[in-house]
């Protein structure tokens, strides 16, 4: 009681609720900031190149290669999924 009275007179200002809000938000804000962040990935071009490369080895369709960029809390996931069509049985 007396201590809190003393501290109220002499010192330490109580943190404002706005300061608490800022501190809490500082811990959960995720993004890098509009212009300081890494430039976007050209997903269409990436998809095309993947198709070109894979086509050299396996015949695939354009739709068999999916490229997606997912942003989670503090990381980005580049998801590439390639479906290889079942091999046609060779006709003798």
């Amino acid at each position: 009681m007396s201590l809190s009275l003393i501290s109220r007179i002499f010192g330490e200002k109580k943190k404002t609720t706005a300061a608490i809000a800022k501190e809490r938000l500082g811990l959960i804000i995720t993004h890098e900031g509009g212009h300081s962040g890494r430039p976007g990935i050209n997903l269409k071009a990436l998809q095309q190149e993947l198709i070109d490369v894979i086509s050299k080895y396996v015949p695939i369709n354009k739709d068999d290669v999916k490229v997606e960029l997912e942003k989670n809390a503090n990381l980005e996931v580049l998801e590439v999924s390639i479906t290889i069509p079942e091999a046609q049985p060779k006709t003798a």
Partner: peptide, 22 residues
Amino acid sequence: VRDSDRIIGILQSKSRRAQNGE
């Protein structure tokens, strides 16, 4: 503020400009 942060992230990944690398 948190929701704005989230929507900025979506803007930077799902907009046409982001998708096309422009």
